[in-house]
Design a protein around this nucleic acid. Structure first.
Lengths: 227, 227
DNA sequence: CGTTCCGGTTGATCTGGATCAAGGCTCGAT
DNA sequence: ATCGAGCCTTGATCCAGATCAACCGGAACG
């Protein structure tokens, strides 16, 4: 697998020139994880910044009751583990592989050294972190201010790339439910409701088609709360 | 008011040397806001990075139903508005002054220019952003994984500086409740419960004394859910 | 000084989504 | 092919916390 190519397809390192991409690629180590394998644990010293090449990684936290909350479902081109490296503190969450997964790892020491020596890279990463904060704020907003249907609708709209209407679910529904702070039962019921209202179709278990983006947007914005 | 002094007391610019502090101070503009005054709105172009000198700022989002969620209560020495500047996108939230408030403003353009020219500063800010992400993740974790009592206990423990036991409430209880995603009624009831269980005392309306940090920690970690 | 208004407390009731329970389906392992 | 072991769905019930409502006390203001 071509490290440079993976790095250039990665949002976190957007708009990096070829030379810098090459430099980062030279630091990278390939890692593969089996289905279900734990990649790191909450409290671990940060190993480095991971970039998913293939597969899917679940980043999650555990509550005292054993409940888990999926913070992030990282598919190809997405990063995880970066925050602890940059802040130099223990990992604030767990990560495991949802299925067989390959990653690039930019080890903590090497990454930090590179950031220290490369001002331009540092600026890029700063911008990416700001986007990550915005994403988290959006997540929080969704969970706090929307009801179950609103969360699901909003998430569905987020998944479709501009203009398309078909969503390939990135993982099992139970993990998507957890990400939205719902139980899988409630997600199932909510999708059924959307189906019955004609807003979506589910031709297969892993695929959802949005039939009416306008009405969906209304549900997401909370205008459609009770029928 | 001394801009350099305020900057040096600000967590976001921790460990900056005198020269850099001075440089930032020279960019800063003083701003004062009356009680209730809106500082910026969701969707606004970012004005810059604000540092609270005196007073208190509420950073919050509005839901479709009109419900507001307080993301951040920024007191003296804390920053807000930084994320939109660094990411160069519209403000993701509203901010208003909870009472008469004075701030330093580092305007977007000047701040970005300084970051571009000062690699060391850039590294500092990167670390601060990572801490901010960790804080947000903690907030999300609290809201998703803890029940009402757990959230309140956790927040109270967060407010006491190491070793002390008295908390001066930074704002009205309704805003604290919103920050914890509770109604003020529920916060009131939860505090009463803690009071009756002998975990806290409320000598006045704005002051809370933690009587038993150990038991409080148990509540925060969810070990005390039903008596 | 009243008086108005807003924040906080407390009580009564309601409800969205969790939890508990029971099949059916898929898919990997044998 | 057969056999689990998860996963998903659907139904029935429950509950933490929201909502509704009433009251109190103090700060702002004429």
């Amino acid at each position: 697998m071509n490290a440079e190519r993976i790095i250039s397809g990665c949002g976190f390192f957007l708009r990096l020139d070829a030379q810098r991409r090459e430099r980062l690629a030279s630091l990278a180590e390939a890692r593969t994880f089996a289905r279900g394998q734990v990649i790191f644990r909450q409290g671990d010293d940060p190993a480095g910044l991971f970039i998913v090449a293939t597969g899917l990684v679940r980043v999650y936290q555990l509550g005292p009751s054993g409940k888990e909350h999926v913070l992030h479902l990282a598919g190809p081109g997405m990063t995880f583990g970066e925050v602890a490296v940059l802040g130099d503190f223990p990992a604030p969450a767990f990560a495991d592989a949802n299925r067989k997964t390959t990653c690039l790892l930019l080890p903590s020491g090497a990454l930090r050294a590179t950031l220290r020596s490369d001002h331009e890279l540092c600026l890029q990463v700063l911008g990416s972190m700001a986007f990550w904060v915005r994403h988290l704020v959006g997540l929080l907003e969704g969970i706090v201010l929307r009801d179950a249907a609103g969360r699901v609708a909003h998430w569905l709209l987020d998944q479709v790339s501009e203009g398309r209407t078909t969503i390939e679910l990135p993982s099992q529904k139970k993990d998507i439910a957890s990400h939205l702070n719902l139980t899988s039962e409630t997600l199932s019921r909510t999708l059924r409701q959307l189906r019955e209202d004609g807003l979506i179709e589910e031709p297969t278990g892993q695929r959802i088609v949005i039939k009416s983006p306008e009405r969906m947007r209304e549900v997401a914005e909370g205008f459609f709360p009770r029928v």
